[in-house]
Write a protein that binds this DNA or RNA. Structure first.
Length: 274
DNA sequence: GCAGCACGTAGTGAATCGGG
DNA sequence: CCCGATTCACTACGTGCTGC
């Protein structure tokens, strides 16, 4: 039922305005039409939707906004919960969120969450690869799915996908805050990934994609950048320099009482630096 | 090109459900 | 029991397929 959310949002708005179904009969809409629309059983005709919204004193533009904001917000909350549970390694919560994704028809995200408590099958990875390959507009949802599953793909695919994402976001300063963070998380996670595989060129390319000026004064991004530079130095230049840079960045998380980030990145680094 | 057919679905009005 | 919400059986209509 791809039209389920249309009815759901309509119902929210109707209840907000204290309307019952019979009240639409004065503009000639049978109440069962509204009922089946709200419960996602059938779609409503455009004329009837327009008349019903007019009765509620809601413009089409307003309805459209409610449609997108409500659903997008809900999904963003789920994404943030997933990342939080992943950072804290809360397997039970991740499994709960996996079920939420299934119920909300968030197919790509459901596979992404699953990868955090289970090994994905080859067909699941393949499906995800194909779905992400078809993405033309990279939103927060698609970026987050890719961020969560990056290490499941091979090197050329990762690089090619990141280049497509960067191509879409060449005006980094106009990008919304949380979107920008996710973009940098991808770049630096991938850079560290290439460092561990000895691909200096790719690791460097990802680090140099955006300059410090372009990042601005976002402490979180600067910190994960320093960790990533540390990993790069560790693998290609000088192990001691690299470690020092990583440790000082980690300590900033600690000083800022960002215990969750401190522990999470410390653990990740321990895995990477053997 | 079009008649005949099956199929899917919006809309209708009545029956039924279910919480207060 | 009441009343709003939901479901059911039915009609109407659009669409796509098939054979001529």
């Amino acid at each position: 039922m791809m039209y389920k959310k249309y009815g759901k949002v309509f119902k929210k708005l109707r209840l907000q305005k204290n309307f019952n179904l019979s009240e639409f009969e004065r503009c000639g809409i049978n109440k069962s039409i509204i009922s089946r629309f709200e419960t996602g059983k059938t779609m409503i005709s455009f004329e009837n939707l327009y008349m019903a919204l007019t009765e509620l004193n809601i413009s089409l533009a307003e309805y459209d906004r409610a449609l997108n904001n409500f659903s997008a917000d809900d999904v963003n909350i789920i994404i943030d919960k997933i990342l939080n549970a992943e950072r804290k390694q809360e397997v039970f919560k991740l499994k709960q969120l996996y079920n939420t994704c299934i119920n909300e028809n968030l197919f790509m995200l459901s596979i992404a969450v699953k990868s955090k408590f289970n090994i994905l099958s080859i067909s699941e990875i393949d499906t995800l690869r194909i779905l992400l390959f078809d993405v033309e507009i990279w939103g927060y949802y698609e970026l987050s799915v890719f961020f969560l599953t990056l290490e499941e793909f091979n090197e050329p695919y990762i690089l090619q996908t990141i280049k497509r994402i960067i191509h879409q976001n060449n005006h980094i300063n106009f990008i919304e805050f949380s979107y920008k963070r996710r973009l940098f998380e991808i770049l630096y996670k991938a850079s560290a990934f290439f460092s561990t595989r000895g691909d200096e060129r790719s690791a460097r390319f990802l680090l140099d994609t955006y300059s410090i000026e372009e990042i601005g004064d976002d402490l979180y991004i600067n910190n994960i950048r320093n960790i990533t530079i540390g990993v790069y130095l560790y693998y290609f230049k000088n192990k001691e320099f690299g470690k020092k840079r990583i440790v000082s960045a980690l300590n900033i998380f600690k000083e800022l009482n960002q215990e969750v980030y401190f522990k999470y990145y410390k653990k990740k680094i321990a895995e990477i630096l053997e």
